Amino acid sequence: MRKVEVCSYNEKWAQLFSEESEKLKHIFGNEVVDIHHIGSTSVPGLKAKPIIDIMPVVKDINNVDKYTIEMQEIGYDPKGENGIPGRRYFQKGGDNRSHHVHIYQAGSYEIKRHLAFRDYLKSHLYEVENYGELKERLAQQFPYDIESYINGKDEFVKEIERKALEWTE
């Protein structure tokens, strides 16, 4: 059973993103348009689960499935769309997750949503502090219940996302 662990921001997360994104560029080659560090580990100062979220943007999402074996060879477990149409999702590390890869096709609304959320937090430090404290409380309250942890953040995340999308307009 996975334990929900939230820790202080770690400067190494940016380097771990860079190292992994190079591996992904090597696998996907010219299919990749861009690769973004998203999620809590991409926001300096934000407490987070120590899992690097990576968002490659590709020319054609349907071509991603051709690279499943190469992704498995570097430790990723393919999860298909995993509940979000138009996404290809991969996890690395089993119960001790280290990376999540969320692949979208260029032009997907999901790209805008993720980048707005990240960039809004980077520019609103009081939100970073509030979000980090909420995550820490929820991790203590639900140490072995990831679903309750996620549900506990849901309202706050949706509110930040709403503000972020307005802010980017």
Rank of each mutant, 00 (worst) to 15 (best):
D34N: 14
P56R: 06
H124T: 09
K158A: 13
Y120E: 05
N130H: 11
V101T: 09
E169C: 07
H102R: 02
K135Y: 05
Y144A: 13
I84H: 11
S21W: 00
S123T: 12
F28D: 04
D60H: 13
K23I: 13
K92H: 15
N130S: 14
H26T: 14
S123E: 15
Y144E: 15
V43L: 06
G107P: 12
S42L: 05
Y9K: 08
K66N: 13
V58K: 03
F142Q: 04
R2C: 05
Y67V: 12
L121C: 08
V57H: 09
H99A: 02
H124A: 09
F90P: 01
I52P: 02
I84M: 12
I35C: 03
E129K: 15
R97H: 05
V64C: 08
K153S: 05
S148H: 06
D145H: 11
L46T: 01
C7V: 14
E110V: 10
S98Q: 13
Q141E: 15
D154K: 10
Y76T: 00
N10L: 03
G45W: 02
I74A: 14
E70G: 06
E31D: 12
K79Q: 13
A139Y: 01
K112V: 12
Y120W: 07
G152L: 10
E110L: 10
G93T: 04
P85C: 07
V58E: 03
S108R: 11
P78R: 09
K23S: 14
F156E: 09
E110S: 15
H102T: 04
D154Y: 01
F17P: 06
F90I: 07
P143K: 05
D34G: 04
K122M: 13
E5D: 10
I61D: 09
N151Y: 01
A106G: 08
N82I: 00
Y120Q: 06
A139E: 01
D34E: 14
N63W: 01
